[in-house]
């Protein structure tokens, strides 16, 4: 289990990285960016990924930050997940993103793995996918033509594929601050704690005059990409919270899914059913938080 040979580059600035990527692209070199490498390294070791060249962003020191800018939390792509986990700013102002971070892998993975790496890798079971969809996050990429901002619903294209071009680097992700009086919940079902989720759900909502409003439901781990489920949101919007309506939303969510992924841990039907349960439970938990 040793990687196939590759060339290695460690640019020290973003500009160098972009220029390098463009050069490699022009030379038809299959280059792959490595950030923390916690998803890429197993694939290299297994020779499932065999790029001609690796471009390591580890020496670029300008992409490691978590800040509040106007109504937005901005996170540098090379910020470690551990830093996000330990961030009181994130905990206080964007608790959904914070909570989801704690579910990612194990501590050693979060120590080395980066926030940006998880977004860019686009694993269907990645917690951040659902968070991005639920919060309407924005991804900032920089390429030869400058900066581009991609909204979450255009960012994830399919299984392990994003809208980031081969010559572009993801530099920052942006999430709105969680408005006051917003309830949220994040739950997933894994075989073991820290495993990739068989299914997971993120929910935000508000209570207005005793009714649910601005309900957002996003799911991950079940289809090629995480997605919002407006069909399920509609069931709850404008309704008084309650077990029956939440269960109904869960059923609507399950019904709205594309044919789910099947693997040794979970059949498609089981995943669908987990979504029904998780949506129901997350709605209840989110309502609790509104109070």
């Amino acid at each position: 289990m040793k990687p196939a040979p590759f060339d290695y580059y460690a640019p020290e600035t973003l500009e160098q990285a972009v220029a390098l990527l463009e050069k490699l692209e022009n030379e038809d070199v299959d280059a792959k960016i490595i950030a923390g490498g916690q998803s890429l390294m197993p694939m290299l070791n297994l020779r499932m990924a065999r790029p001609d060249a690796l471009v390591d962003l580890g020496k670029i020191k300008t992409l490691d930050y978590i800040r509040q800018e106007n109504g937005t939390i901005v996170i540098g792509a090379m910020t470690s997940k551990r830093a996000a986990e330990d961030s009181t700013l994130l905990r206080d102002r964007q608790p959904l993103l914070h909570a989801a971070t704690g579910h990612i892998g194990h501590r050693q993975i979060r120590n080395q793995g980066t926030v940006g790496g998880s977004f860019a890798h686009a694993d269907p079971a990645a917690e951040y996918g659902a968070v991005a969809q639920a919060l309407g996050m924005e991804m900032v990429v920089v390429g030869p033509d400058g900066e581009r901002i991609i909204p979450a619903d255009e960012f994830y294209l399919s299984f392990l594929t994003t809208d980031i071009d081969a010559t572009e680097v993801l530099t920052e992700v942006r999430a709105p601050i969680m408005p006051d009086n917003t309830g949220w919940a994040f739950q997933e079902v894994c075989r073991r704690k820290g495993d990739l989720a068989m299914a997971g759900t993120a929910v935000t909502l508000r209570l207005e005059a005793g009714s649910c409003a601005e309900v957002v439901i996003a799911v991950f781990g079940v289809n090629a990409t995480a997605a919002r489920l407006p069909e399920a949101e509609q069931v709850v919007n404008g309704q008084a919270p309650g077990e029956a309506i939440f269960a109904q939303a869960g059923e609507a969510a399950a019904a709205a899914l594309d044919e789910p992924i099947a693997d040794v841990h979970a059949t498609a039907d089981y995943r669908r059913s987990l979504i029904a349960t998780l949506v129901k439970r997350c709605l209840a938990e989110a309502v609790e938080r509104c109070a």
Binding site: G37, Q108, I109
Partner: peptide, 11 residues
Amino acid sequence: MAVRSCLLLAV
């Protein structure tokens, strides 16, 4: 920080 040394390259 604790990290997995099988998921890092020496470089």
